[in-house]
Design a binder for these strands. Structure first.
Lengths: 64, 64
DNA sequence: TTTTGAGGTAAAGTTTGTTTTACATATTAT
DNA sequence: ATAATATGTAAAACAAACTTTACCTCAAAA
């Protein structure tokens, strides 16, 4: 799975720590997701979508 | 998280085993998700959405 | 009335997601 | 040039997702 977290963060000038706090997860979790180490859980993906107010599919995408 | 798997299955007259096979997971996984025992992973949610050709949010919903 | 198919469940085990702590490197501000 | 902030990473531990095996109940079919 690819994701646009880094870009969405940049658009808002948020740090990984900022995003982590907004989502109530650790900064390492954000870093790991951004670096593709693992995918978020579905509940966390929903929180991300709600935070950015866009569909999950426009933030996370299956890799071809 | 709530989900509409049971209804989507029923509309297609699919068994839990049918759906499990289509998604390449075990029947117990489908049963557990339908019964709310746990949420699917994000990759599995994407497979479900692709199979039913609808957005993740129209299949899975955060509980109020 | 026996068999079959569908759904529910449980235990044990593996894999994946997440936290905490900790440190290292890079970038920015003073 | 130094200090502070942002990012990358790693290990250990725990939690959640998923598999396999196995068994049980119920309803419908044969």
């Amino acid at each position: 799975m690819k994701n646009r977290l880094k870009v969405l963060r940049a658009e808002r000038d948020w740090t990984q720590a900022d995003l982590a706090q907004a989502l109530d997860v650790s900064r390492q979790t954000i870093n790991a997701i951004e670096k593709g180490k693992f995918d978020p859980s579905l509940p966390l993906a929903f929180k991300v979508a709600r935070l950015f107010q866009m569909p999950i599919e426009s933030i996370f995408q299956e890799e071809p």
